[in-house]
Design a protein around this nucleic acid. Structure first.
Lengths: 238, 238
DNA sequence: CTCGTCAGATTGTCAGATAATCTATTCGCC
DNA sequence: GGCGAATAGATTATCTGACAATCTGACGAG
């Protein structure tokens, strides 16, 4: 057989022979990175990639389909392959299978959000003093709140408010994590009464005011209470 | 040139009809969820899935290969398909293409870590008073630190310390986020001098002591300083 | 009882073919 | 000549069939 010395470099682990498609997928990712390709940039066709890598078109397909599933590449019939955009929403869709998040109790989600959102407040307050547009953005959302009439609008605005708050920290990783939590939060954001949303508006307003006044701890207290108000609605969970 | 993305604004049922493989992938995920399958549980064979879904085996393959790429399923030659473990490390491997993290400055990664890790301290301190094993676990790592001699060992122990700290909060989502940040942190954890590690040991010890004493703010200050000590080593970063 | 061998099952890979879809050129009509 | 429709080529989407590689389990020799 082919038990040659190539095995020497291998480790002792069960030696799961590297699959061709994984190799191809890696090469494609390297290609994208090396060529500094961005969203929408074209990639070689499946056939060309097959020839270039010296494998069948099927192996290339399995690799590109896997990458497409992740969102790294996009394939359009009759056009070709292009670089896609890997966004957190799509990722969260698959991440539903991540045990850490799947098994996470609702209470853990709430507590995690409290930690992250209150954690950025000091930073946000500081940036507010140098960039007036931060307070304006938040205030604009609250104003929209007052004129909104449907539940769905309220939910969307609430999501936007909290996301804008995280964005105001200027920390992209935190925003990404917030997006991720958001997906799992969705499930118990639906059952909400009108009266509660009225209180939420004033709660948001209060947070903005306190932040502008530099009173971080007061803002944090209010935000904590605001987020934890969801706690009461989570008894029937699955 | 490249391409207006008219598709972006469109809803689901527009021109691009749902691909079969995406449908199959969705069905497989539903199957796993419905049957409450966990790590290692067997799935029907490719052929059987093909018959059951009424599609060719190749379409099933493209779906399973995409799911395998994500880690949701595992395929072993000659054995069959099984449910896999979707872990954050594997995910982070692909997430290198996530703009939010790719573009994130090193400074943002550091600040994000500070927020998350200091954010859990109050919770950890409280849980410490009821569960002695928490302090023991952290203390054990520090003891290992004192006998460690290689750089790699130090790095591994440092990672373990911070991960254990997050785990002690009991918040699985936070731990997952920490793992994610860890991957991107790795790149400037290598260049470290011996003297700095000696200081790190005492820093870790100090944090444990302060937490046990219930002095959260002192622990937070030390932790912040400890993490931000990486800041000095990140000038050459790309 | 232990070990090797073998048959069956299952995934991995390939080749070829057809359908669907998009792009760009060409053709026809005015 | 200009403009829109028809057409041809390119590319992905899917299917069929086949063979190779590998694992599992049973069976039998010693």
């Amino acid at each position: 057989m082919s038990a040659y010395k190539k095995d020497v470099v291998m480790k002792l682990e069960t030696v799961p022979r590297r699959k061709i498609r994984d190799e191809v997928a890696e090469r494609i990712k390297e290609y994208i990175a090396a060529e500094r390709l961005g969203l929408g940039d074209r990639l070689p066709t499946e056939g060309e990639l097959a020839v270039r890598f010296g494998v069948s078109r099927l192996s290339v397909r399995e690799a590109t389909k896997a990458l497409e599933f992740l969102g790294i590449v996009e394939a359009k019939t009759g056009v070709g392959l292009a670089v896609g955009q890997l966004d957190m929403a799509r990722m969260a869709d698959h991440l539903g299978f991540l045990p850490a998040l799947q098994q996470a109790e609702s209470q853990q989600l709430i507590d995690s959000r409290v930690i992250v959102e209150t954690g950025v407040l000091a930073r946000v307050a500081e940036r507010m003093t140098q960039d007036p547009s931060i307070a304006e953005s938040l205030q604009a959302i609250v104003e929209e709140f007052r004129t909104a009439r449907t539940i769905q609008t309220w939910i969307d605005l609430d999501i936007r408010f909290h996301r804008t708050l995280l964005e105001s920290s200027g920390l992209a990783p935190i925003v990404a994590f917030g997006d991720l939590l958001q997906v799992f939060f969705q499930r118990f954001r639906d059952s909400v009464k009108k009266a509660e949303w009225k209180a939420a508006i004033e709660s948001h307003q209060f947070i903005i005011d306190r932040l502008q006044a530099g009173d971080v701890s007061a803002a944090a207290s209010e935000l904590r209470e605001h987020i934890e108000s969801h706690r009461q609605r989570i008894g029937a969970g699955r």
